[in-house]
Amino acid sequence: MNILVLGGTRFFGKKLIELCLQNGHSVTILTRGQSGNPFGTKVKQLVVNRDDADALSQALSSTTWDIVYDNICYSPNEAHKICEILEGKTNKLVFTSTLSTYEIDGTVKTEDDFNPYDYEVRMGNREDLSYGEGKRQAEAVLFKEATFPVVAVRFPIVMGENDYTRRLHFHVERILQEQPISLPNVDAKMSYITDDEAAAFLYFAGITPIDGPFNATATGAISLKNLIGLIEEASGKHAKISLVGGDEKSQSPYGVPADWYMSTTKAEAAGFAFSQLHDWLPALVQTLVKELQ
């Protein structure tokens, strides 16, 4: 198939492209060019700033695609533009969305907990909206305006050795350096997914005849207390946890006030088998501890 990936030179976007290439597809990446092209001549590259609507439209003016993956849409304005540009030019769009479309209220989230089809659209750019609201608005625009099938993949926090956001690295480094970590609720449970599995589900969402919103996460959840415990066990260090205050540098990027994780019943019914969180998380923690010690 002929596949376009918007944003795909690092982390799970890179893994997605590798998976597409392994399966014999023709891949074009569209990026700003700031992270280079790790695939060389294996892919075609369009160097375009996604925020420049005119340049984006011109770059895609004479193209057609079997699947478009959009990993870098963060606002309703961006979603509206991509709907316009791709009209009649793609058979499907797979949009990378997020757990942040759901409220943090302690309940296990299903796709019905946020319904983009009925959500009131409020146009704006990414700087006008929070991350979660930007993704909610983008989903709403895509499902209301697109003339082609759309899948919105709602990921939790994605983990991996090459996570450029270094969120799990943050906790390992703070514990190794005996620095405090501020958390609002150590008992709050969260769900996670690896970069490999995130890429695998995106690929599945593209080639499988499904559409609509889908949760995608490893099976199971873990409290922040138990995650910290895994790091303590692997490092032999005792974490210094603060439940109130703390300076900005000490605040955990995983800090949430209540349970915040998803059900994958819908995706499993569509035929995707997710990993078990506890089968890979301890090994990932051990790997990062060894790298950062």
Rank of each mutant, 00 (worst) to 15 (best):
L176P: 11
E197R: 09
G36D: 04
D66N: 14
I210E: 05
I29V: 12
N125A: 12
I17E: 00
E18D: 13
L292P: 05
Y102G: 01
F12T: 01
V244C: 09
A79R: 10
L227H: 10
F114G: 02
V289M: 10
Y203I: 00
S130P: 04
P76D: 06
E232W: 11
G7K: 04
A138T: 00
K290I: 06
P116K: 10
D70Y: 04
L4Y: 06
H80Y: 14
E18P: 06
W280A: 04
K240Y: 10
K266Q: 12
H278K: 13
D195Q: 12
E133P: 02
I175F: 10
L86T: 07
V43N: 02
V43H: 06
V153G: 03
G8Y: 08
T217M: 13
G160E: 02
I241T: 08
I29K: 07
S75H: 05
T217C: 15
V256L: 14
K249M: 09
L21P: 13
G24V: 10
L183F: 14
L230I: 02
F143R: 09
N49G: 07
K240G: 06
A188M: 01
L176H: 11
A258I: 01
C83G: 00
S26L: 03
M159D: 07
D54M: 04
E268T: 15
A273L: 09
R122Y: 02
A59S: 13
P76E: 05
I3P: 02
E84W: 03
D112A: 15
S223L: 01
K42L: 15
Q179Y: 03
R10A: 14
R32D: 01
F95K: 07
T217L: 09
Q286K: 15
E178F: 00
S97K: 10
L224F: 14
S130I: 05
A138W: 04
L168N: 06
E120V: 11
Q177P: 01
E133Q: 13
G160H: 10
A258W: 00
Q177T: 14
S62E: 15
V244H: 14
L168E: 03
K290H: 13
V151M: 00
P76A: 07
G13C: 03
L16A: 03
R154K: 10
Y203S: 03
Y119I: 06
V94D: 01
R174N: 12
V158A: 08
K81F: 08
V121S: 08
R50L: 01
I3S: 03
E173F: 01
E78W: 03
E291K: 15
N125D: 15
L281F: 12
H80F: 13
T219V: 13
S35Q: 14
G160A: 07
Q58C: 07
P213M: 07
G24Q: 13
I3T: 12
